[in-house]
Design a protein around this nucleic acid. Structure first.
Length: 639
RNA sequence: GCCUGCUUGGCUUAGUUGGUAAAGCACUUCACUCGUAAUGAAGAGAGCGCCAGUUCGAUUCUGGCAGCAGGCUCCA
């Protein structure tokens, strides 16, 4: 009796196991396939290695790769595997850290040799060898002193530093063959579990993420229990590459960058410029419909303005050097707010004027360090759908709610249904009274709750001048992007001494709300390109239809029809080249246009067109009016 | 800014152990007049990111700069 323990499973079944049996054996009793899939297990809710033994009645929950926890453990073990291989190849290497990340793992190394992707083959081969050696991965618990001695003796100074920070008397390490690493665990039972893996990239990374520290070499990789899963993941990476907005930007003739113009300064080509124009026009009109006033301000302003606003002090890093004009310093505007404030303060405002909402498609210029530039998503000059709302304290809540609803509506129109919302509260360094922060934070909270919008709190992540709500959208392949931000500001109204006359005849200070819904137009378009994979819905498509003739006889007809459609504000192109229909169809498909219209003798005769929709390989013959109606319907529906 | 790698016609790439470069697509012309994912042929197009240096000679070697990629750091 005493030699057996009861193991309670998640479905409340109970099984008996021999006292001291390993989890691996116990799981084998439940099922062979589960035993094979098991990565680790939770015993009495604590994740442990499968090699650990059970000595008392316990609950058991098997962890497989299907769960986030399973992936984390598996990838962490894979990172150890890689580190072991690297250490075998480069004995002088010093190990830093090697955690699991979103879709794999990395390990940071300090090494005099430079590792490049050309070395991946060698490292992967060594990893394979270690997998085939089927080394047991064993946990050991050491005293602080013993642990320090082991890593000191082997010259692993980063590990020594980590151990010293642990301030723990019991240090767990994991051993697999000749390799030992400091680690909390748990891990898979054997190197043989990590069947398929791939090293993906190598990059520099600062020790502990601090710029002042030494730069280490980081190798990224991923791994899966099954070869098929690895293949699928690599395909996904290929897919992401195919929808990269930088590639599509060139292929679809949307935009480009030019060495001579400068890094981070996008040039909008006809197709991209029209896309921008469509979004700009739509966004502007939506603002006007919601009672915003339109603002336009110059791209430069005197540096004094930014002294008043505080940007010269707090935002200097991101601002360009002054331009001298008539012996005065002018600065390329890094933000729209200061200039916009001057519109509000240009005259006496009454409480009756509030809320006063000013909207601008405002272009700003910010210095970004050369290494951070990235396609359209990180540039040095960009345009924000920026607005500032000046309101009374009692109006904040309604304004915030209005902005929230507006934002969600807009994002939906652009095809972003899934989003996550964050409320960022007061950071350590901040301006404004406790009372103001309290009011603003609770107002933001109330607004979210009244609209039944689920959100998470990001404590201390607010801006120094006020709390904010950030909205992250999820694109078609599940990546998150932050675009929208709604911020309450106590700082600028003070700095610019903004006032309105209340019904008591006295001056009062309004509250300012900054908000951008799409954020930067450049970045938003970059995200849109990837989200739609270049297949823009009809209302956004730079070219909605390509018209093509079958033989030379219909060429003029096609050109005339194109002119007619263009004159009626349809975005049409004609392909009257002397090529086969098959060839032109193929070409048009690669341009991802929503409609392809083929016109042969029959169509000219019947005054019809043969329409082939994107993604379909059948065509429908219809009159030109019928076609126009379809396009109009889709444009109105923003489809 | 930092680390690693990269930079050859519009695009994708080949190549030269240093003797001024090759292909496919795109483009132009000609022929074909063709019915829903590539008709055929011919032609034009780069001096190999920029600036120096080494050399009889540099696209190839060295240095600097710029740009790009992947990261790190940063991101009001």
């Amino acid at each position: 009796m005493n030699s057996e323990v009861k193991i309670k499973l998640p479905d409340s079944r109970e099984i008996l196991a021999e006292k001291g049996a390993s989890l691996y054996d116990i799981i084998g009793k439940i099922g062979k396939s589960l035993q094979k899939a098991a990565i680790s297990a939770r015993v009495n809710e604590i994740p442990v290695d499968l090699s650990s033994t059970v000595h008392e009645n316990s609950s058991l929950q098997v962890i497989t790769f299907d769960t986030a926890e399973g992936k984390d453990i598996f990838w962490h073990s894979a990172s150890h595997l890689m580190a072991q291989a690297v250490k075998r190849i480069y004995p002088g290497v010093r190990l830093a850290i090697g955690p699991s990340i979103d879709n794999g793992f990395y390990y940071d190394f300090e090494l005099d040799d430079k590792i490049t992707i050309d070395d991946f083959d060698t490292i992967e081969k060594e990893m394979e060898k270690i997998v085939n050696e089927a080394l047991d991965i064993k946990r050991e618990v050491l005293s602080l002193d013993d642990a320090l001695k082991i890593f000191r003796d082997s010259g692993e100074s980063y590990k020594v530093e980590l151990i010293q920070d642990l301030k723990d008397n019991e240090i767990s390490v994991y051993r697999q063959g000749d390799f030992i690493d400091l680690c909390r665990g748990p891990h898979v039972r054997s190197t043989s579990c990590i069947k398929s893996f791939k090293l993906l990239s190598v990059a520099g990374a600062y020790w502990r993420g601090d710029e002042k520290n030494k730069m280490l070499q980081r190798i990224y990789g991923t791994a899966f229990p099954d070869k098929k899963d690895l293949a699928r993941y690599l395909e996904l990476l290929e897919e992401a590459k195919k929808r990269d907005h930088r590639t599509l930007g060139r292929e679809l003739e949307l935009f480009s960058f030019d060495n001579e113009v400068g890094a981070g300064l996008p040039l909008w080509h006809p197709n991209g410029a029209i896309l921008r124009f469509i979004i700009d026009k739509f966004t502007t009109i939506e603002h006007l419909k919601r009672g915003y006033n339109l603002f336009v301000v110059p791209h430069i302003a005197k540096s004094d303005l930014y002294k008043t606003s505080g940007h010269l002090e707090f935002y200097k890093e991101n601002m360009y050097s002054p331009i001298k004009i008539d012996d005065q310093d002018y600065i390329l505007k890094p933000m729209n707010c200061p200039s916009q404030i001057k519109i509000f303060t240009s005259t006496m405002r009454s409480y009756r004027d509030l809320p006063f909402r000013g909207f601008e498609m405002g272009t700003v210029y910010r210095y970004e360090r050369s290494g951070v530039l990235h396609g359209l998503t990180r540039v040095r000059g960009f345009t924000q759908d920026d607005a500032h709302i000046f309101c009374r304290e009692d109006q904040i809540e309604e304004e915030i709610q209005g902005v929230l609803e507006f934002t969600l509506d807009m994002l939906k129109v652009f095809g972003f249904e899934e989003k996550s919302i964050y409320l960022s509260t007061r950071p350590e360094k901040s301006v404004g009274s406790d009372r103001n922060w309290e009011i603003a934070t609770s107002t933001l909270k109330n607004s979210l709750e009244k609209l039944k919008i689920p959100y998470k709190v990001d404590p201390g992540e607010g801006v120094f001048y006020g709390p904010k709500i950030d909205i992250k959208i999820k694109d078609a392949i599940g990546r998150e992007w932050q675009c929208s931000t709604i911020q309450v500001d106590f700082n600028l109204p003070e700095r610019f001494d903004i006032t309105y006359i209340g019904n008591d005849g006295q001056k009062h200070r309004p509250i300012m709300i900054h908000r951008a819904l799409l954020g930067s137009l450049e970045r938003f378009i970059g995200i849109l390109i990837e989200h739609y994979s270049g297949k823009f819905p009809t209302w956004l498509a730079p070219v909605q239809v390509i018209l093509m003739n079958v033989t030379e006889n219909e060429a003029d007809y096609v050109r005339d029809l194109k002119k007619l459609l263009v004159s009626q504000e349809f975005r049409a192109e004609a392909d009257a080249r002397n090529e086969s229909v098959g060839y032109k169809i193929r070409d048009a498909i690669s341009k991802k246009v929503p409609f392809i219209a083929v016109i042969g003798a029959k169509e000219v005769n019947d005054k019809t067109i043969s329409i082939r929709r994107r993604g379909e390989n059948k065509s429908i013959t219809m009159t030109i009016d019928e076609f126009k109606k379809i396009v109009v319907v889709e444009m109105n529906a923003k489809a």
